[in-house]
Design a protein around this nucleic acid. Structure first.
Length: 532
RNA sequence: GGUGCUAUCGUCUAGUGGCCUAGGACAACGGCCUCUCACGCCGUAAACCCCGGUUCGAGUCCGGGUAGCACUACCA
C-alpha cells in the first residue's frame, strides 16, 4: 500500500524560530515536494506557560520569506494568517475535545492511568531516591489509580484535585524504531518512564500524546524532526501500538543537530549575540522578556542564500555541486544522503553563499534593497533622493562583486554620494608623494581640456572572452603621464585619493564617469587645498 | 549516573572493501591580474579518534576502548 506522502513541521510558539528549526522545516518541505506530497504546519502550543505572543506570526512569516510553502495547516499570506485543509484545527490548544477522547481510550484500555502525585511530592521523591523514575518498578508506591480504590480516585477527581494521566509502559521489552537515517534503533522499555500524557491543571495533553494523535489524524506518513527526539521515539512507537495504529505509523527520520561554531553543544539562541551572527531568520522582538534578536533578513541575507546554506548543513548531493536553487534541491534531496553527525554552524560559509546569490541579483533590484541603508546614511527622511535610481544601480554594478551583504554596499560606494572630507592616513603615506600636488595641478589642466561629452566616452573591447573598457580619458591622460615620465601608479593613486579619500575602489575612469567632470575637478581642487 | 546517537582537513563534507599517494567547498597562506582595494583565476598547507579482528587488501565491515553530543520534566 503506497501512502500519500504527508509531512509536517510542528513548532512551538515559545519564541523566534531557531535556525535549526528552519532547517527541519526545509527538509520536510523538500521531501514533500519531491514526492508530490503535502507539507503541513501545525502549532504545538500545549505548554500554556511558555507561550510567547507573536511567535506564531513570526514562524509563519519566516517560512513565507524563505519560500518554504505550506500546503495544509497554518500559513502566512500577505501578512495574514490563514488556515487551510480539512484536518484542522491546526493549533493544538484548539483541539482539547479531540484529545479528551483519546486520553479516555487509553484509560479504558488500561494503557494509561491517573496519578495524583503533586510536583512537590515528585521532587521530594527524586531527592530521596537517586535516579528515581516513575515506571513499572515504582508506580505501585505512588498515589495513582493503580494503587488507590476506584471510589477514592473518583472522589478526588470530583473534588477537583489536580491530576495527570500517565502512560503505562510495560517493562522488559526491546522496542524497535526504524529510522530512515540511522537504521534500526533498539531501546529497552525499562529505561522509559511512565510519561505524563495529559495534565488536568490546564486541560491539555503533553507533546507526546498530542503529537501522536495529531500525526495519526492528519495522516502523516513521515516524521522528519531533530535528533533530540530520538530518545523518545520508542515511547511514540509504544503509543501508536497502544492506540492500535501500528499499521499506519509514520516512518521516522531524525536529523542531526546544528552545533555551536566554537566549543561544544548544540547551537543555542544565545550564541547569535555572543558570536555576532544571527541564529534566527527574522529579527524578533520578544514581547515577553523584551529582548531583541537579530535576523538573517535584517542582516542583509537573501532568502535563497539562507536556504542553500542550510540545505548543505547536514545534507550533500552526489557530486561537488554546492550552489542549488530550491527547485534543484527538491529534485536532488534525499534522506539517505543526510549526515548522521551534527554539523557545526559555519557562519563564514554562510557569507560566501550570500555573496554568490548577491551577484545573481540585478543592479536595479539591489539598488531598491540598498535604499533604506542609503537613506539612513545620507540622513534623508523623506523620499527625495538627490541621486537618481539609475545612478545608484550603476554604482552598485561597479561595486557589488566586493560585498557579501547589501548594507556593506555603503562602505564601497559612499564616496560616490559624499565627497571625501578627510583622507585615509595609510593611503596618504604610501601614495601621496612630494610631487603629488604638482601632478594634480597639471592633471587639472589636462582634464579641463576634455569636453563634457568626451568625458563619459568609452568603448567596449572584446578579446579572449574578456571585456575591456577603453575610456576616452585614458587616451588623454596616459600620453601626458608618459610624456613627463611621471609613472602611472603614482599619478593615478594620488588622483584616486582626491576622489575617493583612500587608495581603494573601482576603476578610476568608472569613478570619474559617475562623478562627472565638474565634481571630479572640484574634488581634486579640494584635496589640493587640504593636502597642499 | 543511566540510555541512545555519532566519529574523515580548523569548518561543511565526498567516500558504501581495491578507482584513495583520501576528492570538493569555506576560511588561511602564496602567486597572477592591476593605478588602488576588492572580485576573479592559479597554487600551497591541512584529515581517515585509538587498539584489536575479518580479508590477498579497510577510511570503508566487526568488536572493544575513547571522545563528543542528545535525552533522562505535569517543556517541546
Amino acid at each position: 500500500m503506497e501512502r500519500r506522502v504527508r509531512v509536517r513541521f510542528a513548532p512551538s510558539p515559545t519564541g523566534a524560530l531557531h535556525i535549526g528549526g528552519v532547517r527541519t522545516a526545509l527538509y520536510n518541505y523538500l521531501f514533500a515536494r519531491q514526492h508530490g506530497g503535502d507539507m503541513l504546519l501545525r502549532i504545538e502550543d500545549t505548554d500554556s506557560t511558555r507561550f510567547v505572543p507573536g511567535a506564531e506570526e513570526y514562524i509563519l512569516e519566516a517560512l513565507e520569506w524563505l519560500g518554504i510553502g505550506i500546503d495544509e495547516g497554518l500559513r502566512m499570506r500577505n501578512g495574514q494568517i490563514e488556515s487551510v485543509g480539512s484536518h484542522g484545527p491546526y493549533r493544538q490548544s484548539e483541539r482539547r475535545e479531540i484529545y479528551h477522547q483519546y486520553v479516555k481510550q487509553l484509560l479504558d484500555s488500561g494503557h494509561a492511568y491517573i496519578a495524583f502525585d503533586t510536583p512537590e511530592e515528585l521532587e521530594a521523591k527524586r531527592a530521596e531516591i537517586p535516579n528515581f523514575q516513575y515506571d513499572a518498578r515504582t508506580r505501585m508506591q505512588m498515589r495513582n489509580s493503580l494503587t488507590m480504590a476506584a471510589e477514592d480516585v473518583k472522589a478526588l477527581m470530583d473534588k477537583g484535585e489536580k491530576y495527570v494521566v500517565r502512560f503505562k509502559v510495560e517493562p522488559d521489552e526491546d522496542v524497535h524504531v526504524h529510522d530512515l537515517i540511522r537504521g534500526e534503533v533498539v531501546i529497552n522499555s525499562n529505561i522509559l518512564d511512565d510519561k505524563v500524557l495529559y495534565k488536568s491543571a490546564d486541560d491539555l495533553p503533553t507533546y507526546h500524546l498530542a503529537n501522536i494523535v495529531d500525526d495519526h489524524l492528519m495522516e502523516i506518513s513521515h516524521v522528519i524532526r531533530g535528533e533530540e527526539w530520538l530518545p523518545s521515539a520508542p515511547l511514540h512507537v509504544l503509543l501508536y501500538r497502544a492506540f492500535g495504529w501500528s499499521d499506519t505509523m509514520p516512518q521516522f527520520a531524525h536529523l542531526p543537530l546544528l552545533l555551536k561554531p566554537d566549543g561544544n553543544g548544540k547551537l543555542s539562541k544565545r550564541d547569535g549575540d555572543r558570536l555576532g551572527f544571527p541564529v534566527f531568520p527574522l529579527e524578533f522582538h520578544n514581547q515577553k522578556d523584551g529582548t531583541v534578536s537579530s535576523g538573517y533578513r535584517e542582516s542583509g541575507y537573501l532568502p535563497e542564500a539562507v536556504i542553500n546554506f542550510l540545505a548543505l548543513l547536514g545534507w550533500h548531493g552526489t557530486g561537488d555541486q554546492e550552489l542549488y536553487t530550491m527547485d534543484e534541491l527538491i529534485k536532488e534531496f534525499s534522506l539517505d544522503r543526510v549526515s548522521k553527525s551534527g554539523a557545526k554552524f559555519d557562519f563564514e560559509k554562510g557569507k560566501w553563499f550570500n555573496h554568490q546569490y548577491l551577484q545573481l541579483r540585478s543592479n536595479e533590484e539591489l539598488a531598491e534593497m540598498f535604499l533604506p541603508t542609503l537613506k539612513e546614511k545620507l540622513q534623508i527622511t523623506n523620499d527625495q533622493l538627490p541621486i537618481d535610481k539609475a545612478m545608484i544601480a550603476k554604482v552598485i554594478g561597479l561595486t557589488k562583486d566586493r560585498v557579501n551583504f547589501v548594507p556593506e554596499l555603503w562602505e564601497q560606494t559612499n564616496f560616490f554620494f559624499v565627497a571625501p572630507t578627510e583622507y585615509d592616513e595609510k593611503s596618504l603615506k604610501k601614495r601621496w608623494k612630494e610631487d603629488s600636488p604638482k601632478h594634480m595641478n597639471e592633471l587639472l589642466e589636462v582634464l579641463e581640456t576634455v569636453s563634457e561629452e568626451d568625458w563619459h566616452k568609452n568603448e567596449q573591447m572584446v578579446n579572449d572572452q574578456m571585456v575591456n573598457t577603453l575610456w576616452h580619458l585614458d587616451k588623454v591622460v596616459m600620453p601626458w603621464i608618459e610624456a613627463h615620465e611621471y609613472g602611472v601608479g603614482i599619478v593615478m593613486n594620488a588622483f584616486r585619493i582626491c576622489l575617493v579619500g583612500a587608495a581603494r575602489g573601482p576603476h578610476i575612469w568608472a569613478i570619474t564617469d559617475v562623478l562627472g567632470k565638474e565634481e571630479t575637478l572640484a574634488r581634486v581642487r579640494t584635496a589640493l587645498k587640504i593636502l597642499g
